[in-house]
Design a protein around this nucleic acid. Sequence first.
RNA 1: GCACAGGUAGCAAAGCCCGGUUACGCGAUGGACUGCAAAUCCAUUUUACAGGGGUUCGAAUCCCCUCCUGUGCUCCA
Length: 501
Amino acid sequence: MTLHLYDTRRKEKVAFHPAIPGKVQMYVCGITPYSPSHLGHARCYIAFDLLHRWLEASGYDVDYVQNFTDIDDKIIRTANEEGIDFLEVANRNIADYYEVMDALGVLRADYYPRVTEHLEGIISMIEKLIEKEHAYTASDGVWFSVASAPEKFGTLTGNTLDAVQAGGSGRLVESGKKDHHDFALWKAAKPDEPTWDSPWGPGRPGWHIECSAMSLHHFGESFDIHGGGFDLRFPHHEAEIFQSECCTGREPLVGVWMHNGFVRVDGEKMSKSLGNFWTVRDAFNNYDPLVLRYALLNAHYRNPIDVSEQLLDDAKTNQRRLAEGYGQALIAKEEGEALEPLPPLPTPDASSDSYLPKRLGIIEALAEEAARALDDDLNSRIALAKVQAGISSIDETLQSDQIDEYDTASFAKFAVDWIEEIAGDILGVLPEPAIAKAARDPRLDPKRIAVKEEVEALLARRGIARHAKDWAAADEIRERLNEMGITVTDTPDGASWSIKE
RNA sequence: GCACAGGUAGCAAAGCCCGGUUACGCGAUGGACUGCAAAUCCAUUUUACAGGGGUUCGAAUCCCCUCCUGUGCUCCA
């Protein structure tokens, strides 16, 4: 099965064939760093991180470019308010971006070009567009003339020129553009704004041209995949199509246009004005980054996702299940090392009557199903379900008395590899081995070791109280431990305890 | 208004492109276990697809109409 991706332009899933076999050129619109990253960013870059990982796992050599739009009205406004240079604002938020995305397991792109480093390319592109009469100068800058290539209008959205007229009219008076569909390529300098020199006087680039210039710089006249948030389809991405295709004469600019769905909160778009705005760091206060990643991958990337405590709590449960299963396999693998050399595993065969070949067959089939799901427009929801099914099956096998300790040890090695490949390398939702082992066996948790002595002293006293059937005293000690963040669990072998999260 | 998405069991969310069968999970209920809990395990909750027409042996899935929700409709949101 080959990878199929949904193309916004063609409005259908298409078989993915990069222009150069084996290589993928992929460009994803990056952030405008005027404020810390929010959940919408997390969703977008996790979605494209999954694509990045899956393409590489599928054997492609991926060239991934993601820009920073480091000059923009909102950056300038923030800088002026704080009385600092605009680049300071941009750099601060770019640092925040890297930090939170690293925590979310988003692998780095190959290049992170910045607008302020591509003025030359931007200017030469505008010059060419003027030369080809796709753009014109006005007192307030340079504008792209949509009427010079009207057939490109609505490429991604299905909008028509007439339809957009209705909403866009009335704003024409304030600018030098001839037609309200036109958009700025170059903005003439205004007071209190950083400027660059250009053939049209000092000013700065319009919002859309940077992506055209940077993709041209890195990939040339066309490339395989262009991604971004759903809201960027119009005007941003359609503007890119106008600029790039009119400049180079080559079309289409992009093989597959991909757009991820919105993040909503309580059914509405997350926005600062509604007071439902979550930065990624806000989420980190209450949830582990990998839990957030799990939650966002637990819905298909194109569908809207409603972020709620329930969604995150569910993800927490699921991600923990995964961590525990991984921890168990790791522990079993380590225990098995004493038994080396181990026998080779039998050939997997899901239809076998023999226990181990059957289990191996089932688990391998799950991996194939997960791969098929990802090949089908990155259905991460299904892939995660298959992983969970695999975890259950592994758990069952490790505890089974139908295989001896040698086979169990061999199986544990297989299980660790299986989990690390799918849940770790591809989906990126797997914790570090030490954390996973602690999740499975609390005795291995450093935090636990720190309080061990005190807790066990209290439990000893509680044991005496219980033995005397002094339930009041026993419960009082349990409550005291509870306040310390310790959960006590009575078992037939005596009391055990764990640290609450 | 126009455009683009979405409306699936108590919740959440796949499936829709390629009509006929699955989901993972949360919650709930019952049971095992327990001094009581917690955790865990087992079982049950397995004919839901916004509404109305149509096509078909058969539709969540294809066609038509309607309703509801969200987002976009340009560089200032």
